[in-house]
C-alpha cells in the first residue's frame, strides 16, 4: 500500500445532543463511515447538500471535532485523537480556509498582525524576519504590501479570503482544507480566488480537500470528487468519471440540478433525475440505503440493505444496488 498524504478510514463522527424540555437526548451521526485517500499535490472535492457532513469531515480532520470511530493517517502516521503539542504540530501540516470571509479574520487585528501571529506559531523552520515573510505571503496571494496595515473591514470579500489563504500558508502546510471557501464570493471574484488556489497548488505542491455544494466549482478545481449524502460518501471517482458518467442516482440528481451547460458534457446527456422531498433528518437516518425515500430507482432491497461501496463499470466507486457493476474484475 502506497502511503498517501492523507488517508481516512471508516471515519465516524457522532454528536451528542442533551435533553431539553420536550426533547429527548439524542446522538446525531454526522459522518457515518467515510473513507478516502488524498495524494500530495492533488485535489479531492467533496460535494453534497447542507447537513450531509461535509464540513464535519474537515472540522474533524482539523481536530475541532472528535471522531467517534475510524482513523486518520497523515503521511502514513496515525493522527487520530492526538492531543497537546503533537496535535498542534499535526494541525500545521494541514490548514483550513473557512467559509465566511467576514468572520474568519479577527476584526480587531490588522492583516500584518494576523499573519505575524500565524508565522510566529510555525513549529518547523522558525521565522528569521517575520515582517519580510508577511510581505512575501502577501505577494504570494496577490495582495500589495500596503494591505499589511489594513483591518478586515477595509477589505473586500475576495481580499479577505486571500488574507485567509496567506494565513494558512504561513505555517507551511502540505494540505489545505477549503470549506466552502469561495461560496460566499461574487462569481468574478470566485474565479480569481480559484485560480490563485490552483497556482499555489502548482507552485507549492499543495493538496486540497475542497468542500463545496457547488458542482461547477468542483469541476474546475478537483482531480477527484466524492459525493456525500447523509454522512456517507455515496460515489467517489475522478472528476471526469463523476461528471461525465455518474452512476449513483443521487449524483445524477445533483448534476441534473445544475443549470449551466458547461458542467455536463452535452454529448453524454443523461436522463434528468429530479430530487423530491427534503433530506431526511440525520438524527434518524432511513433504513437500508439512506437515499431510498427520495430515489427514483428504489426497490425493496434498498429499504433493507445498505449498499456497500463498490467499483462500477465506468471506474468510480458507488454505493448503490443499481449502479452498473464493473464488468472486468477490479485489480487487487
Amino acid at each position: 500500500m502506497s502511503t498517501s498524504l492523507l488517508e481516512v478510514n471508516d471515519l465516524e463522527v457522532t454528536f451528542r445532543r442533551s435533553a431539553g424540555p420536550g426533547r429527548k437526548a439524542a446522538s446525531v451521526p454526522a459522518v457515518r463511515g467515510v473513507s478516502f485517500q488524498l495524494e500530495a499535490g492533488t485535489t479531492l472535492g467533496i460535494a453534497g447538500e447542507s447537513g450531509s457532513g461535509k464540513s464535519t469531515i474537515a472540522r474533524t480532520l482539523m481536530g475541532i471535532n472528535t471522531p467517534s470511530g475510524g482513523s486518520m493517517n497523515l503521511n502514513g502516521e496515525d493522527v487520530t485523537g492526538l492531543k497537546g503539542r503533537r496535535l498542534a504540530e499535526y494541525r500545521q501540516t494541514m490548514q483550513m480556509i473557512f467559509q465566511d470571509p467576514y468572520d474568519s479574520l479577527d476584526p480587531r487585528m490588522t492583516v500584518s498582525q494576523t499573519l505575524l501571529e500565524a508565522i510566529k506559531l510555525r513549529k518547523t523552520n522558525k521565522p528569521v524576519s517575520p515582517m519580510a515573510e508577511v510581505h512575501e505571503l502577501l505577494d504570494k496571494v496577490g495582495l500589495s504590501r500596503s494591505f499589511a496595515s489594513r483591518k478586515p473591514r477595509e477589505l473586500s470579500g475576495g481580499q479577505r479570503q486571500r488574507v485567509s489563504i496567506a494565513r494558512a500558508l504561513s505555517v507551511d502546510p502540505r494540505l489545505i482544507l477549503c470549506d466552502e471557501a469561495v461560496s460566499a464570493l461574487d462569481v468574478s471574484v470566485r474565479a480569481q480566488v480559484l485560480n490563485l488556489l490552483k497556482d499555489l497548488q502548482e507552485e507549492l505542491g499543495l493538496a486540497y480537500l475542497f468542500i463545496s455544494h457547488d458542482l461547477s466549482t468542483l469541476r474546475f478545481m478537483a482531480d477527484y470528487v466524492g459525493i456525500m449524502y447523509l454522512g456517507k460518501i455515496v460515489e467517489l471517482g475522478t472528476r471526469d468519471e463523476i461528471f461525465d458518467r455518474p452512476q449513483h442516482p443521487y449524483t445524477r440528481a445533483l448534476l441534473s440540478a445544475v443549470p449551466e451547460p458547461l458542467v455536463i458534457d452535452r454529448t453524454v446527456r443523461l436522463p434528468r433525475v429530479r430530487l423530491t422531498g427534503e433530506p431526511p433528518s440525520s438524527t434518524n437516518p432511513p433504513s437500508g440505503c439512506s437515499f431510498h425515500p427520495r430515489c427514483p430507482l428504489a426497490q425493496d432491497v434498498c429499504r433493507t440493505v445498505s449498499p456497500a461501496a463498490r467499483p462500477t463499470a465506468s471506474g468510480q466507486v458507488a454505493a448503490c444496488h443499481f449502479a452498473d457493476p464493473e464488468l472486468v474484475v477490479a485489480e487487487a
Partner: peptide
C-alpha cells in the same frame, strides 16, 4: 465558535 477563533486554534495558538 467564530471562524477567526477556530482559525487561530487550528494554527496552534
Amino acid at each position: 465558535e467564530r471562524e477567526f477563533v477556530v482559525a487561530s486554534r487550528t494554527l496552534g495558538l
